[in-house]
Amino acid sequence: MASVNFTPNIQRHVACPATQARGSTVREVLENVFAENPPARSYVLDDQGGLRKHMTIFVDGRAINDRTRLSDPVGLASTIYVFQALSGG
């Protein structure tokens, strides 16, 4: 299972503890995380299910390419970081 970590800044608004989830893409992993933590979903994804404009996601140290479909691959031992960008504050 992939390890998923959220920016500390999101914790003030909604609890997003570090967790582990299954999935072969970023989308699959996040959907499994949000199935367990529904309130967190709208803080990370927009109305269309894409990554919010000023959020970013790293998989094993690389920023994802597909912010719309979240199709970037995730390995069994991957580490995912969900961060906010410095822009847009």
């Binding site: 709208s42 990370v44 959020m55 847009g88 504050g89």
Partner: peptide, 8 residues
């Protein structure tokens, strides 16, 4: 409006 985290 939480900016990065959207409208609540």
């Amino acid at each position: 409006d939480h900016g990065h985290f959207g409208v609540k």
